[in-house]
Amino acid sequence: MGLPLFTKAVWKTVKNTNNSHIKVKDYIGIYRDNWFGNVEVFINGDKLWIKSHKLPKFNGEMYFYNSNTFAIKWKYQDMNANAFAMFSLDEKGKAQSIKMKGISPSINFSFHFQYLD
């Protein structure tokens, strides 16, 4: 069974998007959430990554999708729960907070991404 069409379209968009205008330093930081604990956005090699300090399987590379949204491909793929990370930015373009939601419309509801804030 392959990826749903919407999910395939997301990764096609990621692949074809020019992200040279993104200032990754504006997204780096530690964000606090009651469920995920401390969520850190950082540079791993030359790539933007995200990880939850409380939930080690939520650790993966971030790919620019559009506007203020990144697609996350978790390192641990057995979960089948790749997600969007949508940042709220201040007036200078610096990230202030993150919200998340699953990329696949059929993602298991138990991941509770919608509660990350």
Rank of each mutant, 00 (worst) to 15 (best):
Y115W: 08
S52W: 03
I43V: 11
F58Y: 15
M1P: 08
L5C: 12
N68D: 11
I103K: 07
K94P: 09
H21K: 11
S104W: 06
L55P: 02
F87M: 04
L48T: 06
F109N: 09
K94S: 06
D46L: 07
M62C: 08
W74P: 02
F70G: 06
D117S: 12
D33Y: 06
A81Q: 03
F64P: 03
K47E: 00
T17D: 00
M62D: 00
N59C: 13
S52M: 06
N82R: 07
R32P: 00
V41Y: 05
R32W: 07
K101T: 10
L89A: 00
V39W: 06
T69Y: 04
A81M: 09
K94H: 13
K101S: 13
A95G: 08
K54S: 14
F84K: 02
H53C: 11
A71K: 05
K8R: 15
G29F: 01
Y76K: 06
K15P: 00
G60H: 01
M86S: 03
F42Y: 13
H112E: 05
F36T: 05
N59E: 13
L5Q: 15
G60D: 07
F36L: 09
K51M: 02
L3G: 01
F58I: 15
P105A: 10
F6H: 09
N82P: 07
I43Q: 02
E91S: 12
Y76D: 08
K73I: 06
K73F: 02
G2L: 09
G60I: 02
K94A: 04
K54G: 03
W49P: 04
K75A: 01
T13D: 11
F87A: 02
F6Y: 14
N82E: 06
K47V: 05
K101R: 13
G29A: 11
R32D: 02
V39L: 02
I28A: 02
D33C: 11
L89V: 00
N38V: 12
M1C: 15
A9P: 02
S88E: 14
T17E: 09
I107V: 11
Y27W: 04
V14Q: 04
M86T: 02
W74M: 10
N38W: 14
L116T: 11
K99D: 05
W35L: 15
S97I: 01
M100K: 04
G102I: 09
Y65S: 05
K99I: 07
K99P: 01
M86Q: 11
D117L: 04
F113L: 08
I28N: 08
H53W: 12
Y76E: 07
E91Y: 12
D33H: 01
I30W: 08
T7C: 08
Q77W: 15
D90P: 04
S97Q: 04
S88I: 12
W11K: 01
V10G: 05
M62W: 03
N66A: 10
K94L: 11
F58K: 06
G102V: 06
N18H: 10
N66K: 14
K25H: 15
F64R: 01
Q114Y: 14
S67Q: 14
F42R: 00
W49G: 00
P56R: 10
N34V: 12
N59R: 12
N16W: 11
A85W: 01
G93H: 10
